[in-house]
Computed example of a mutant assay.
Amino acid sequence: MINSGLTVNFHLTKNCNFRCGFCFAHFKQTAHLEYKNSASIVQELRNFGFRKINFAGGEPLLYRNFNLLLKYSKKIGFITSIITNGSRIDQNWVKDIAPHLDILGVSCDSGNRETLQLLGRGNGTSVDHTKRVFEWIDEECIKSGARIYKKLNSVVTKLNWKENMSDFVKSLNIHRWKVFQVLRIEGENEMNFSDYQISNEEYSFFLKTHSGLPKYGVKIIAEDNSLMTNSYLMVNPSGRFYDNNSGRYYESDPILEVGVEKALQQIHFSKENFTQRNGFYSI
């Protein structure tokens, strides 16, 4: 049986209401599964032994019946997680979903509105809205007794590698900050990648700038390009495992046709890289 501590990342949809120029999850050639098939994949993954599932996109909250799928995943025993740009989250959503959600991750790459607009991450309102989302989570946890682990995801690019985001990050009251070096993926973002590409030294500079945050309770998880390669178990919107081996995506046969075990054998995954990027953690 697969190690129960591993996370499966189910990218439900390629649809997104933001246009981040560095995005490597366009899934241009993939179709979308109907809810019934997505739920069947979730069940197959759980039967195989996976315990943690993370829903991503695109923007996962644009997937039809997303709330229903999340609640179903929790019902059958998954530790549930979301990575979202947060734009479609309001206080009513938080109240409805809190009992079924274990981990909430919001993607925001800067504490500067102008930088976010240049990156294509909405119209710049993500700075304030991200703060509100985490405040709503805190308030709901206090009211209901829910326990939701909070994290921020940020991609370091040419537009933000000199920025000090410390005050913004501290204001969010989060547990974990994942800091990614912008990654080139053939067929996804290579056309304009030079507009965002940074050197290893520039990435290290960004990390050094924020090295004081752990004393405020923020655990920084740094993922350079080498650690991002083959360290994620990912399912694309058409229900196939895929990997980013050698700078491009390779995919398995459909999980619902060949089963989880055979589909896993068709992609590259490094448990060592998963471990090195701190993929195993308690909430």
Rank of each mutant, 00 (worst) to 15 (best):
residue 6 L to H: 09
residue 7 T to A: 12
residue 9 N to W: 15
residue 9 N to R: 10
residue 10 F to G: 09
residue 11 H to E: 02
residue 11 H to F: 14
residue 12 L to S: 02
residue 13 T to W: 00
residue 14 K to W: 08
residue 15 N to Q: 09
residue 18 F to H: 11
residue 20 C to P: 09
residue 21 G to T: 09
residue 25 A to F: 07
residue 25 A to K: 12
residue 26 H to W: 13
residue 26 H to D: 07
residue 29 Q to N: 14
residue 30 T to C: 15
residue 32 H to K: 05
residue 36 K to R: 13
residue 37 N to T: 05
residue 37 N to L: 13
residue 39 A to D: 03
residue 40 S to H: 10
residue 42 V to D: 00
residue 43 Q to V: 03
residue 44 E to C: 06
residue 52 K to F: 15
residue 54 N to D: 07
residue 57 G to E: 03
residue 58 G to R: 11
residue 59 E to F: 00
residue 60 P to Q: 02
residue 61 L to R: 07
residue 62 L to T: 13
residue 65 N to C: 09
residue 69 L to I: 07
residue 71 K to N: 08
residue 79 I to Q: 14
residue 82 I to L: 08
residue 86 G to R: 03
residue 88 R to V: 11
residue 89 I to N: 05
residue 89 I to D: 04
residue 91 Q to N: 10
residue 91 Q to D: 13
residue 93 W to P: 01
residue 94 V to S: 08
residue 95 K to R: 14
residue 96 D to Y: 08
residue 96 D to A: 11
residue 97 I to V: 15
residue 100 H to F: 15
residue 101 L to N: 01
residue 107 S to G: 01
residue 107 S to Y: 06
residue 110 S to R: 08
residue 111 G to D: 03
residue 115 T to Y: 00
residue 117 Q to D: 14
residue 118 L to Q: 15
residue 118 L to C: 13
residue 120 G to S: 06
residue 122 G to T: 10
residue 122 G to H: 04
residue 124 G to E: 02
residue 124 G to F: 06
residue 129 H to W: 13
residue 130 T to L: 02
residue 131 K to D: 01
residue 135 E to F: 06
residue 136 W to V: 00
residue 137 I to N: 02
residue 139 E to A: 15
residue 147 R to E: 06
residue 153 N to K: 02
residue 155 V to R: 03
residue 157 T to M: 03
residue 159 L to R: 04
residue 163 E to N: 07
residue 164 N to R: 05
residue 164 N to W: 09
residue 165 M to Q: 12
residue 166 S to H: 03
residue 168 F to C: 01
residue 170 K to Q: 11
residue 170 K to L: 10
residue 172 L to D: 08
residue 175 H to T: 07
residue 175 H to Q: 13
residue 179 V to R: 00
residue 180 F to K: 04
residue 181 Q to S: 13
residue 184 R to Q: 12
residue 186 E to F: 09
residue 187 G to D: 02
residue 188 E to H: 01
residue 189 N to Y: 15
residue 190 E to T: 09
residue 192 N to P: 00
residue 196 Y to H: 10
residue 198 I to N: 02
residue 199 S to Q: 11
residue 199 S to F: 10
residue 200 N to E: 11
residue 202 E to T: 10
residue 203 Y to K: 02
residue 205 F to M: 12
residue 209 T to P: 00
residue 210 H to V: 11
residue 211 S to R: 11
residue 212 G to L: 14
residue 214 P to V: 04
residue 215 K to A: 11
residue 217 G to S: 08
residue 230 N to M: 04
residue 232 Y to S: 01
residue 233 L to Y: 01
residue 233 L to V: 12
residue 235 V to F: 05
residue 236 N to C: 09
residue 237 P to F: 07
residue 237 P to R: 01
residue 237 P to L: 10
residue 239 G to P: 03
residue 240 R to Q: 15
residue 242 Y to R: 00
residue 242 Y to Q: 04
residue 244 N to D: 02
residue 245 N to Q: 10
residue 247 G to M: 03
residue 247 G to S: 05
residue 248 R to E: 03
residue 252 S to W: 08
residue 253 D to T: 08
residue 254 P to Q: 12
residue 256 L to E: 05
residue 257 E to T: 09
residue 262 K to E: 05
residue 262 K to P: 07
residue 262 K to G: 01
residue 264 L to N: 04
residue 264 L to V: 07
residue 265 Q to F: 09
residue 267 I to L: 05
residue 268 H to M: 04
residue 269 F to P: 07
residue 275 T to E: 14
residue 275 T to N: 07
residue 279 G to I: 04
residue 283 I to E: 12
residue 283 I to P: 06
